[in-house]
Nucleic acid binder design. Structure first.
Length: 419
DNA sequence: TCTGGGGTCCTAGGACCC
DNA sequence: TCTGGGGTCCTAGGACCC
């Protein structure tokens, strides 16, 4: 049996933790730059759709006393690891699937434990230890555990936020209740196609011929169908090092001049290099992209990317910056108002495997230099040591008007209890 | 004024090789 | 009229996830 444990409205729940007066109050959390809504408490859901543009909903927020927060990833990341730590103690095998979700495996448990009771105990321990409410679904496959979780979340009173699919009767009942577009792995495109052939529920989907599924949804769809039929195809996965690393941002406003965009791209390249060093990888290729604001139909649009194969693997700030700027020069065009850019590094090799090519290789001095830069930045605060081509004087700020304190990760912002 | 960011996997089709 | 056959590798694009 698998369990899927999912934190309820995770970001909103984190914000609420340290302000008990917000219990039962509507809360939304905004994306970077306070752009759009990325999390809502249950109370806020009737008023604000997911992904709503914040500026369009300003009056809705005010009218309904919705508390608005900028996203505070330091807080969410820390609360996430606390939740995961507790879950780890409840199962021999855990797969952390996202910041607010984990699969647990319970092989043979069902013969010795009442999973429903076990789930409730687990839920209680998480809530007691972190204050974060979770929902738990148990089932013989991962996809069915997702379905069970959704039921637990939808009917918290009846299920006490724990639901177990252990018999075929319950599986069928659950699938008949689940709309096909809500199934894990069925997105907008597939949902559209399925509705054209009158497939409405997850149960309908399990009855489709394998040929049809294979033809229109590839092997991925076939696996999903098997999972929903009760045959496990998706195993627990162990974290591997990443295959791509991206650093991309929208700008606070439009930029038209090369130098400003170049400074941003330089900083993104440096961040990618830092992330690479953290997982002890070097990259062999990189992509830079820029584009204008697609929402501004009144402005001329331009969007390009450039992929550069590197002559040698590297994770040096200096070298990656050089390559990223070269790529940017290839695609930058005057006369457009740029709103977003990004650097993505790809094709990794381990840091310690140095393959000397005939012509060029990474500057060996950079390794020590970068170690020192990381050490200083780690100890005295990020971003103190920069390249001169990054903007030294100006600090780029995201719009984060409603940022909560980093209660759990910064001593000077820690939560205070008055006696 | 203002609209997120970061990932994965699969497939079709082209390039290239013998 | 008619123009090998088969393999591998790579890439762009499309689908999905949170």
């Amino acid at each position: 049996m698998f369990a899927l444990v999912d934190c309820n409205n995770f970001y909103a729940s984190c914000e609420r933790l340290f302000q008990p007066k917000l219990r039962k109050q509507p809360i939304v959390v905004l994306s970077n730059n306070d752009g759009c809504v990325i999390a809502r408490s249950n109370e806020a859901k009737p008023f604000v759709p997911m992904g709503a543009a914040a500026f369009e909903y300003k009056s809705v927020f005010e009218k309904n006393n919705i508390h608005v927060f900028s996203s505070n990833y330091a807080l969410y990341g820390d609360m996430s690891s606390r939740v995961m730590q507790i879950l780890t103690e409840h199962s021999p095998e855990i797969e952390i699937y996202s910041i607010d979700e984990a699969f647990l495996k319970f092989d043979g448990f069902e013969h010795h434990f009442d999973l429903n009771e076990y789930g409730k105990k687990m839920r209680h321990t998480v809530t007691k230890g972190t204050g974060i409410p979770v929902s738990i679904g148990f089932a013989p496959t991962k996809a069915l555990a997702k379905v069970a979780n959704k039921i637990a979340k939808k009917f918290p009173d009846r299920t006490e936020s724990v639901y177990v699919i252990e018999t075929d009767e319950k599986r069928i009942k659950a699938l008949k209740w689940t709309k096909v577009e809500d199934v894990w792995g069925i997105g907008r495109q597939h949902a559209k196609r399925l509705s054209q052939i009158r497939i409405k529920t997850a149960y309908d989907f399990t009855l489709l011929s394998e040929e049809w599924v294979r033809k229109h949804m590839s092997i991925v769809g076939v696996r999903l169908q098997k999972e929903l039929q009760g045959f496990s195809c998706l195993e627990m996965e162990q974290p591997e090092s990443k295959k791509n690393i991206a650093t991309t941002r929208s700008f606070d406003k439009n930029y038209t001049d090369f130098e400003t965009v170049k400074e941003r791209v330089t900083t993104f390249a440096v961040t990618c290099a830092e992330k690479l060093r953290k997982q002890k990888s070097c990259c062999n290729a990189l992509m830079v992209f820029i584009h204008t604001n697609g929402f501004r139909k009144d402005l001329p649009q331009y969007s390009r990317n450039y992929v550069l194969k590197l002559p040698f693997p590297t994770n040096s700030n200096i070298e990656l910056t050089k390559f990223a700027n070269f790529a940017l020069q290839k695609i930058f065009k005057e006369g457009y108002a740029y709103k977003k850019a990004g650097v993505i590094v790809m094709d990794f090799t381990p840091e310690n495997v140095t393959q000397t090519t005939l012509y060029e290789s990474t500057n060996p001095k950079h390794k020590q230099l970068m170690e020192m830069v990381d050490k200083i930045n780690d100890s005295i605060g990020r971003k103190k040591v920069k390249l001169a081509s990054q903007d030294v004087d100006r600090t780029w700020k995201m719009n984060q008007e409603k940022l909560s304190p980093r209660y759990t990760t910064r001593l000077d912002e820690i939560f205070q209890v008055k006696a």
